[in-house]
């Protein structure tokens, strides 16, 4: 059975020329007959299927639509066209540090966050010890999260997510922030996940991270899928393309320099 089925996903963002955040600006733009925004297609006809137990990586340059895709899988964003079907319990870890309330303590945030991920109070209470142990933050749980370092926030977020017993774990670029030791632990835990037959969907710019964790990868560029296949192969192609592009840039620059 497939865990994720994305069928021809299109996502349009409206990018305001100058953000009209007041009625006056909106009204003026309307009067002038301007739409006041550009349409921008962040994803164009993206389709793929992820089988249960697969670990899949999403790579591509900044702004290519990776976070958008993950947001759609997490149901935080709605695709403009197309449909996604996700089977199983999803745990998203989207972008850095989101979902924590800076004024609340670590403990309070664990309960709030876990409830967002569908865990009841008693369930969370039962898992609480494990969550804190894994994050290695037992001395900080009664301090407000605003006093945490970036890495500490990520550790807590990651630890909550993996203790929710998800069937599908969505991770957006959070593995690089923990320290060396925590990264080892996280990768080990992800490997365990895979062995347990869970589905992993990882967005990362760390290509070695992707090849370590994932069997398969998708290379996304400007909202299109370039290739979809074996992780090592796709990562190599992506890497080569970047190198080739950089070389052509350097050559163009050299040509410009010699021409002038």
């Amino acid at each position: 059975m497939s865990a994720i089925e994305a069928d021809s996903i299109w996502k349009e963002y409206r990018r305001p020329h100058v953000r009209a955040t007041t009625f006056k600006e909106a009204a003026l733009a309307l009067l002038r007959g301007q739409r006041g925004y550009d349409e921008f297609w962040a994803l164009q006809d993206v389709s793929f299927t992820v089988e249960q137990g697969e670990a899949i990586g999403l790579v591509g340059p900044n702004g290519s639509g990776k976070s958008t895709m993950l947001g759609i899988l997490a149901r935080v964003l709605r695709p403009t066209r197309g449909a996604v079907e996700v089977t199983g319990r999803v745990c998203p870890l989207l972008e850095l540090g989101t979902g924590f309330h800076p004024d609340l303590t670590g403990r309070e945030n664990v309960f709030l966050n876990a409830s967002l991920l569908g865990s009841g109070h008693r369930q969370t209470a039962a898992r609480y010890g494990d969550i804190v142990d894994f994050a290695e933050l037992s001395d900080f749980m009664d301090a407000p999260v605003k006093t945490y370092s970036t890495g500490m926030v990520i550790r807590l977020g990651f630890s909550i997510a993996i203790h929710m017993e998800p069937d599908i774990l969505l991770i957006d670029e959070v593995l690089g922030v923990g320290d060396e030791h925590f990264q080892h632990k996280s990768y080990a835990r992800l490997a365990e996940f895979k062995r347990a037959g869970k589905t992993l969907f990882v967005v990362s710019h760390s290509l070695t991270g992707i090849t370590t964790v994932c069997d398969r990868a998708i290379w996304l560029d400007r909202g299109h899928i370039v290739t979809d296949g074996d992780a090592d192969e796709v990562v190599r192609q992506y890497h080569d393309a970047v190198i080739a592009w950089e070389q052509s840039l350097a050559e163009a620059k050299a040509r410009d320099a010699s021409a002038s």
Partner: peptide
């Protein structure tokens, strides 16, 4: 917004 962007509810 932090919660809204973090997860579906």
């Amino acid at each position: 917004m932090a919660l809204v962007k973090k997860a579906y509810f």
